[in-house]
Structures are given as structure tokens and as C-alpha cells.
Design a protein around this nucleic acid. Structure first.
Length: 360
DNA sequence: CGACGTGTAAC
DNA sequence: CCTTTTACACGTCG
């Protein structure tokens, strides 16, 4: 059966929220930052609004670089306030839930809605639902969003990206070919830098080039599964359902004040991160079986060490294990210093379906 | 197959 | 000089 899927993307969400609550920056270029705290401007850009993007400022870039680009210009730099953004996000997700029976929130500012039923399998009705959603979000929160509509999540996502901000794009199956014809392969959702480089070497520039390419060569370069996935994506094929998935892991990362290989200093940071993560674990009511140490060295290389244990929901009780993982890592990498550390709990067992002792 | 570690990608 | 959090695929090992 043909589904109808909506993808909703809130426009430069963090920056828009800050503009709404600080009239003095309204209409300006706004850059939301994650400061790492190791020096005045160390950290990265989380969100740049459209005015800031015109200056070449993009999410992910170092704050120091963004400030250079903003030199002599009127640009507002603000620290991010995730807690506040989450509160508003939750309210918006409730609006979306009113308009569909199947929703999948994929991030703080993005959701997929399966409106097959609600639209009676009719594109026009789906478009009306999208318009209602845009209107409600504008009226209730003062925000704009971009909406994409397609027969699957991939196409809906690509559609929402097509016109931003405040866009509404429908890509019917008959239009997929045309839409993908001249689309650079790198713009396909899920095709990042590494994949693009390999595609480039194969002479593949557009989604159409990819869709028409020899499967065997793709399999050689990417392996069977990824080759199939890439071909499907280039053809606008995606059968994955809209479904809210249970969380698989909870992690916390932090940046150390200085690069160090001192166990005590690093473990202090880990304890700090654990306090915050403990709250999250309690809120989500999860128990876990695997605990990991995440390290990022001065060369920004990420490594992990993990241990699987008896199921627990008590993070404090596994901190000694994290400490031993850290000691092991430092022994095995005595030449390295760490820039950042993190911890991760995974291999979840959810409370509602948690087995009691009697079940074993 | 489960555990472990790495890489890629997106936000 | 470079943040945070999550998902998922894949290779390897026992």
C-alpha cells in the first residue's frame, strides 16, 4: 500500500527561539554556541540563523572561526539553552501528535508523521494537514517550519530540505525521477563526506548517476548492504516504517579543562558527567547491561572501552568499572593525552517489560 | 551468537 | 583549533 508521510523540520530552531525571547536580537544574524569552557571562544556553533548563514557561518564550525567571519558585522553570539529548547520542542511535538496517529520524533526539531489514514490516502488532504500544522506552530509558538511530503520517509525528508525556511514541498512518486535527476549525490540523506569521496572517484556526481550505476562495482567499494542502501536511496526507495523507537543508549561527553593523562583529573570529570547522566537514566526508567568509557585524544581520535555486566539501574555502582576501564586505556595508550571524556550506558532493558527474578 | 571496538552520519 | 548525543553497520574474536 502507498503511504503518505510528512517530515516536519523546525527552521533554525534554537536561533529562532532566542530571537523570540530577546527582542534586542530580533532580525539580526544569530549564532547559538556550545562553549567548551577551555578558553574564551573554544567550542562549536550549534545553530546559525539564515542571516548568519549568509556570512558563511554554519553549524559545526569552531566559534573562533565564526567570530572571524562575523568581524565588524552585527552578529549575536549566544550560549545554547537546551533545557529551554526542549520544553518548547515538547509542546510542538504535542501539536504534531494531534494531527496523526503515527509519529516518529527523530531529534529535538524534527519529526515524521504517517498520515496515510488521516489523509484518506489523498495528497490534497495531506497538504491540508501540513498547512494546519504550520499554522498551529506559528500561532502557538511563533515559529516557522519546513514540511516535506512523500510516499516514504526518505522522500519526505528530501522534500522538506528542498525549500527552507517556511517551505512546503510535495514530491509524488511521478516526480521523484525529476527531483533526483540533477540532485548532487552528496545531498542524499545519509550520504556524508566519506561516501561522497568514494562516489566522486567512481565518477558519480548526481543521484541519477548513482541510481544507474553498476551494482557490482558499488558492492566492491561499499559491501553488499550499503551498496543496496545507496541504490535504493538514489531511487527514492525506502520501506522503513514511521515508528517511535526505544532509546538504545544514553551518553554524556565533556571537554577537559586541559589535555591530560592523569587518572584522578579525568575521573573527576567522569563523576561530574555521571551526575547528569544518572538523572537521565532515572527519568527514562531504564536499566542497562553495558557501560562504556569514551575517550577523545588530543588528535581528536575517539576510542571506547566497554564492559557488559549484570543488569543494573544504579550508575554509581558501576563507576569503579569505568575507573578500571580508564586505567586500562591509559596503560595501553601511555603516550596519549585526553582532550575529552565520556561515559555511555547501553544494552537497555526497559522497566515495563523488565523480568522479575521469578521469570528466570 | 554476544561482546567489543571502529567508522559513518545526522542533528 | 574542533560540541553533543544518538543510531547503526561492520569486522573480529571466542
Amino acid at each position: 500500500m502507498q503511504r503518505i508521510i510528512l517530515h516536519i523540520d523546525l527552521d533554525s530552531f534554537y536561533a529562532s527561539l532566542e530571537e523570540l525571547r530577546h527582542e534586542n536580537i530580533r532580525g539580526k544574524a544569530v549564532v547559538i554556541c556550545v562553549y567548551s569552557g577551555r578558553s574564551e571562544d573554544s567550542g562549536a556553533v550549534s545553530t546559525a540563523n539564515y542571516k548568519a548563514r549568509e556570512l558563511g557561518i554554519k553549524s559545526g564550525m569552531p566559534i573562533s572561526l565564526a567570530k572571524r567571519l562575523a568581524k565588524d558585522k552585527d552578529v549575536a553570539f549566544l550560549p545554547n539553552d537546551i533545557e529551554y529548547y526542549r520544553t518548547v520542542s515538547d509542546r510542538i511535538m504535542e501539536i504534531l501528535e494531534e494531527e496523526t496517529d503515527i509519529m516518529q520524533q527523530v531529534s529535538i526539531d524534527e519529526s515524521y508523521l504517517d498520515v496515510t489514514k488521516k489523509s484518506n490516502e489523498n495528497w490534497n488532504n495531506a497538504k491540508k494537514i501540513a498547512e494546519i500544522i504550520k499554522k498551529k506552530i506559528k500561532e502557538q509558538e511563533g515559529l516557522t517550519c519546513s514540511v516535506g511530503i512523500g510516499h516514504n520517509k526518505l522522500v519526505a525528508k528530501m522534500a522538506s530540505k528542498h525549500k527552507k525556511p517556511d517551505g512546503l514541498t510535495i514530491i509524488k512518486d511521478t516526480e521523484i525521477k525529476k527531483f533526483f535527476e540533477n540532485l548532487p549525490a552528496s545531498k542524499i540523506h545519509g550520504v556524508g563526506g566519506k561516501t561522497t569521496k568514494v562516489l566522486d572517484e567512481l565518477g558519480i556526481k548526481t543521484a541519477k548517476d548513482l541510481a544507474d550505476f553498476d551494482v557490482n562495482i558499488l558492492e566492491e567499494k561499499f559491501g553488499r548492504n550499503k551498496a543496496k542502501l545507496l541504490l535504493d536511496k538514489a531511487r527514492g526507495i525506502d520501506d522503513s516504517p514511521v515508528e517511535q523507537k526505544e532509546r538504545q543508549q544514553i551518553s554524556r561527553l565533556g571537554t577537559l579543562k586541559e589535555d591530560t593523562d592523569d587518572v584522578v583529573t579525568i575521573f573527576e570529570k567522569i563523576k561530574e558527567l555521571a551526575t547528569d547522566m544518572k538523572k537521565k537514566i532515572e527519568k527514562e526508567k531504564v536499566s542497562f547491561r553495558t557501560i562504556s568509557l569514551i575517550t577523545i585524544d588530543t588528535a581528536l581520535k575517539t576510542q571506547t572501552r566497554s564492559e557488559t555486566i549484570q543488569v543494573t539501574n544504579d550508575l554509581d555502582s558501576v563507576l569503579p568499572i569505568v575507573k578500571s576501564l580508564l586505567e586500562r586505556f591509559l596503560e595501553e595508550n601511555s603516550e596519549k593525552k585526553l582532550r575529552r571524556v565520556g561515559i555511555r550506558a547501553s544494552n537497555f532493558i526497559y522497566k515495563k517489560e523488565q523480568k522479575t527474578l521469578g521469570d528466570f
